[in-house]
Amino acid sequence: MTDLTLTMKYRPNQRVDMSPITCDKLAGLELAEIAAIELQNGKRKIRVDDLFSLTGSDVCNIHIENSFAKLDYIGHGLEGGNIRVTGDVGAYLAMEMRSGQITVSGNTGIYAACQMKNGLLQVIGNVGDFLGGALSGNKKGLQGGTVIIRGNAGDRVGDHMRRGMVMIEGDAGDYCGSRMTAGTIAVMGKTGRNIGYGMRRGTLLLWQQPKIPATFGDCGTHTFSFLPMVFDAISKFDSKFSDSSKHFNRVHRYGGDMAEIGQGEILVQVDSA
């Protein structure tokens, strides 16, 4: 059985809601039934086979080819299975995903991994704002699982994040870890202004010194035995984070945000040399 492959025929002007195309929702459907599914496209609906040519039949492994930045809600609420995307994707990638794996070869729009509950999301390119965040008005962003970004991330990474692990190989924008309740965000590159803004709990693990906000307290330099365990846990993923030469257990700790309950922390790698 070969992967169910959806190859995009053309790029519509309006955005497309891809939420009906997940492994669990397609389970048990024949190819003709999948082709007949209607996707919201702007204010109208279009059939899947109008937009994509379909091959293969394994709905547990979906491959979307020639994707572009107006395909929203890919992997929405995914419960098991594997979605592989070649190209860019739109907003709300892996929103409320519960399990399974999504890999995107290009860039994503805003709200990737929004309110995601579990599973693995990997993006080879860059991601927009609110990675792992919560929708406006909601209080729970990323609630579990692992997010790996090979490129850069926009502003507000992990806004209201509650649990889980976000790893960014590149840079992160402003307000990284804002209003974070728990979990871990690791950033190898640079971070923007107002890091940890309104952070309640959780860990921001950084390879480069950020500009520390005034509402974070300097707790000094420490060696933590939990860090090797964190690195060991993430070493199984295909990313720079599995490179042991980039691992450390000695960090400078900043506690905050003291304007909130102050139980969060920014841990910055200390060069042991």
């Binding site: 649990r163 871990t184 933590f224 939990f226 964190v230 846990a233 922390e265």
Partner: peptide, 12 residues
């Protein structure tokens, strides 16, 4: 504070 690593919770 706690940290969940490989689905196990650890207390610091």
């Amino acid at each position: 504070t706690s940290k969940v690593i490989n689905d196990n919770r650890y207390w610091r």
